[in-house]
Amino acid sequence: MEDFLLRALIAGVGVALISGPLGCFVVWRRMAYFGDTLAHSALLGVALGLLLGFNLTLGIVATAIMIALLVTLFQHQKRIASDTLLGILAHSSLAISLVVLGLLQGYRVDLLSYLFGDVLAVTLEDIYWIYGGGTIALALLGYIWKDLLALTLHEELARAEGINITLTQTLFMVTVAIVIAIAMKVVGVLLITSLLIIPAAAARRFARTPEQMAAIAALIGGASVVAGLFGSLQWDTPSGPSVVVAQLMLFLGSLLAGSLLRTVRP
């Protein structure tokens, strides 16, 4: 197997293993648009990182956390609907980052690879980032798992039972920010949300408990990375979008399998 393909598989599967379980919470908490907004803001992190000269991955994590805090702050006002607010933040941060990148003279930025990912070009350093960040994200998610689950079911009940709501929510946002930063290397800014929500949505029909759904989502995510990359090689299609198309096929397959299951055991 070619080295670049091996690196791409290792990177992609690594991202899928964390984005699957995390994506379940994005789906349960109905935060798909929120995730999308943070993903759009990731490009702002890249632009600011290039402008100010700090590490791009850290720049993305920092920007995503800042946008997440901004959303939380604005949630207390009632004059702007939350989806409007998310739309404003998503598109303005994308636009600002494109403007900043345009102003940066002397850099030749491969915009397409940021927008749609270029997993076939990942380096060994990227893999370290993915597995380092992924391990931290998985540890964080494991740490808050039961509290976040209680919080997702009923916030007041969780509060009454002594769960620290603010801490749990903040750690969850940090986890999302980290996963977006590492997922960007595989599918790019515009497609990150798919990595979070499609495997989780596909896993629903086969799971009886939240933990089963998380594990199945990780498996489906991993399988779609493998299928997408080989497809991309076979038909010479862009890698990131190919992974997403593979996810979609697995999702459609899950719908079919789900209805077959129901026919067999009604």
């Binding site: 789906v27 039961k146 209680a150 997702t152 079911l153 009923h154 039972e161 009886r208 759904m213």
Partner: peptide, 23 residues
């Protein structure tokens, strides 16, 4: 505490057995 309304959305798979162990 038993809240007035607790709707568990079907998007989250949850058996009674599992629910009793939350949190």
């Amino acid at each position: 505490y038993v809240p007035q309304r607790l709707n568990i959305d079907p998007i989250m798979p949850m058996t009674v057995e599992r629910f009793l162990s939350i949190p």
